[in-house]
Design a protein around this nucleic acid. Structure first.
Lengths: 342, 342
DNA sequence: TTAACGATTGACAGCGCTGTCATTTTTTAA
DNA sequence: TTAAAAAATGACAGCGCTGTCAATCGTTAA
C-alpha cells in the first residue's frame, strides 16, 4: 500500500542505497541520478518510514519540545511553529510538558529523551534560561536550540533565537512618551523571568533617551498575573496621592497585568485612555478581551518557533551555520487603551 | 547502553520471543517464566524500543490527537491527560492541530495518520461531532475515541466519553434559583456547538423543575467570546427596561462570555453580586481573572482525556470493554459572582 | 505405561531503512 | 593512451522487535 524505498529503487532503476542517499541529501550522487530518483519519489508519493529510519540509523529524526506551562496560548503557538518546521523537514515531534520546579526534573527529562532517541530539544523559558540544564543535555550529544529574551546570546552553548524584549519595551514606552506622557509607571512581572528584566531595561532606556526623570515609586514589583495588575494600579492611583504623584500612563509587563490594571482603573472610574493610558505586552488573547482593547507588543511566536526548529534541525544534520542566531523584536500594536495625554 | 530485548532474554534465560510475549501481555506464558522475565526487565530497566515495535509488528503503538484550536487551555489539558495515559501504556502521542474548516481537511489528516501508522485517534469537538469524519477514519481500521457533550453516545461508532453539560448547566441554574433568583437570563455560545445546545437544555430544565416561567427575551444568542458577553449584558440590562424586565441573574454559556457580561455590568455601575449574579461555565483561567471571581462549572479535562485515551488503547489492544462509555458531569464551583437575590 | 493432546517455548525471517565497505564508473594526470 | 585517483553506486548486514511456524514440554486419557 504505502510505497517503500524498494519501490522507489525499482522504479528509478537504482539501488535502495542510492535512494537513501537522495532522501538524505547526501553528496556523491550524480545530478542525473538524483533527478531520476526524485521523479520516482514524486510519482509514488514516497515518504520515508520514520520508524525504520530511527531504528536503522545512528541518526534520529525525532525532536522534543520540553516546556513548563506558564501560558497555554504561548505553548500552543510554539507547538504549531515547531510542528510546521518538523513536517517540512521530515522530523517527528514529541511534546514533553513538565513541572520545571520538580526535583529531579532534569533526570526525568533525560530518561524520556534517551528512551525515545531524541536528536534535539527545543527549549523555551524557564528551561532555556538554565545553563546547567542545557549543558547536561549537550553532554548526551543531544542538540539544543534555545528561545530566550535578550539581544545577544548569553553563551556559546547552543544556537539561540533571541526575543528582544528590551527594544520592544523601549518602543512601547516611547509610544507613550510620544503621546505626551511624562509620568509613566512600570508594573513588573516576576523578577525571576529574564523577560521582566529586559522589559524593565527597555522602559528605563526610553525614559533616559527622552530625558524623563525616573521615579522609583512608579515601579511596582509584581508577577505575571491579573491580580498583580489590579494591586499595582490600586497602589499607583490611590486617592490619597496628589495629582503630581500619579502616573498618567502605565506600562505593564504583560497583557494579564495590563488587564488587571485596566480593570482596577475602571473601578475607580478613571476613563481609559482619556485620563490614563495603559499598555501591555505579548498580544495575548487577554489584550483583545478587555475594554478598551489593549495597546501591546506582538511576538510572532509561531514564526519564532519555526525558526528555532530549523536551526535545531540544521544542527542535527550537521549543516553549516550551526551557531547562527536570529533575533526578533516584538512589534508595537496600538489599540485603544493608550491615548494623547490631556 | 540501553537494554534491548536480547539483554533481557539473556538475563532471564529465555528466548527473545518469550520476552516479547511477556512485554505484550500475551497468554501462553507460564507464570514462573513470566516472573523471571519481569524481574529481568526491572533489573535492566528495559523499555521496548517503539521504533522497532512499530516497524516489526503489524500493530502500532502510536496514537494521534487531532484537534482544532478553539481554546488553548482546553487543548493543553487534553494533551496532558492523553500523554499521561500514553506513557502508562507505552504509547507515543503525535499531536495534530489543524483547521477544521479547511477544505480537504479530512484527506489531509488521513494522509498524515497513514504515514505515521497511527493506531488510533483521540477526537474532541468539533471533530468528535462529525459522524462522517469518524466513519471515514474507521474505514481505515484506525480506532477512535470521542469526547463530546451529552449524556449518552449519539451512535455506536466508537467509544465515547460524554461530558454532561446539560446536568451541569441545570445545577448551575439551580444554584441561582436556590439563591432566590427567578429572573434568570441565558447568554448562549455558538449554536453550532453541541455544548451550547446542551447547556441551554439544562437551563430550561432547571426553570421547569422549579416552575419558573420562561422568558424568551432573556435568552440571548451569541458566541463564545468576551464581546458577545458584553453585548448580551448591555441588551439585558438596558436603561430603558423596567425593573421587571431585567434579569437578576445571568447564566453565561462559558467563562469568556461571563467575563464580558461582568465587565459590561460593572461599567453600568451594577454591583456584583449584590444587584446581579453572573455565572460562567468551564472554570477557565478567565474565571479567576475577573473581579469578583466567577461562579462556574469545572470539567476535569485532564482526567477526561486520560480516561478517553485508556478507552482508545484498550480498543487498540482488542481488550474487552470496547464500547464502554464514561460520563463526566462538570461540578459547580461557587465563587464570588453569584449571591442571594436581594 | 504410552499415545495424544494442548500448553509453552524457541528458531528464524523480515519490517524499511542506514552504515560499512567493496565494486564500478568516471575523471584526472602522466 | 594508460595508470592512478576520485566519484558514484551497490551488496549486504543488521537496528530491535514481532509474526509464523516448528519444536518441546507437561499432562491427560486410554
Amino acid at each position: 500500500m504505502k510505497a517503500t524505498i524498494n519501490d522507489v529503487a525499482k522504479l528509478s532503476g537504482v539501488s535502495i542505497k542510492t535512494v537513501s542517499r537522495v532522501m538524505n541529501n547526501e553528496p556523491s550522487v550524480r545530478q542525473l541520478t538524483r533527478e531520476k530518483v526524485q521523479a520516482a519519489v514524486k510519482e509514488l508519493n514516497y515518504q520515508p518510514n520514520l520508524a525504520a529510519r530511527n531504528l536503522a540509523g545512528t541518526k534520529s529524526f525525532t525532536i522534543a519540545y520540553v516546556y513548563d506551562n506558564p501560558n497555554a496560548y504561548y505553548i500552543i503557538d510554539m507547538q504549531e511553529g515547531i510542528l510546521s518546521a518538523c513536517r517540512q523537514q521530515g522530523f517527528e515531534l514529541l511534546i514533553n510538558p513538565c513541572d520545571s520546579q520538580q526535583e529531579n526534573i532534569t533526570e526525568e527529562i533525560i530518561n524520556t529523551i534517551k528512551h525515545a532517541r531524541v536528536a534535539g530539544l527545543v527549549l523555551t523559558p524557564p528551561f532555556s534560561e538554565r545553563p546547567e540544564f542545557v549543558k547536561r543535555i549537550l553532554e548526551l550529544d543531544i542538540k539544543v536550540v534555545r528561545i530566550m529574551s535578550g539581544d545577544v546570546a548569553p553563551d556559546e552553548l547552543s544556537p539561540c533565537v533571541m526575543v528582544n524584549d528590551r527594544n520592544a519595551a523601549q518602543t512601547i514606552t516611547q509610544h507613550l512618551i510620544d503621546l505626551g506622557h511624562k509620568k509613566i509607571s512600570f508594573i513588573a512581572g516576576g523578577a525571576e523571568h529574564m523577560s521582566t528584566i529586559e522589559r524593565y531595561k527597555g522602559y528605563r532606556r526610553a525614559l533616559k533617551a527622552n530625558d524623563i526623570e525616573f521615579n522609583k515609586s512608579w515601579v511596582i514589583e509584581g508577577e505575571y498575573s491579573f491580580e498583580s495588575g489590579v494591586n499595582g494600579a490600586k497602589q499607583l492611583l490611590a486617592q490619597e496621592l496628589t495629582y503630581e504623584e500619579r502616573p498618567t500612563a502605565i506600562f505593564s509587563c504583560n497583557d494579564e497585568i495590563a488587564a488587571g490594571a485596566l480593570f482596577a482603573a475602571r473601578l475607580m472610574n478613571i476613563k481609559i485612555p482619556e485620563q490614563l493610558s495603559i499598555a501591555g505586552f505579548e498580544n495575548s488573547p487577554f489584550s483583545r478581551q478587555t475594554w478598551p482593547k489593549l495597546t501591546t507588543a506582538n511576538q510572532p511566536n509561531k514564526q519564532i518557533a519555526n525558526d528555532a526548529t530549523s536551526l535545531l534541525i540544521s544542527q542535527i544534520r550537521k549543516q553549516k551555520g550551526n551557531n547562527e542566531i536570529s533575533q526578533y523584536v516584538p512589534q508595537l500594536v496600538v489599540r485603544d487603551s493608550t491615548g494623547q495625554q490631556a
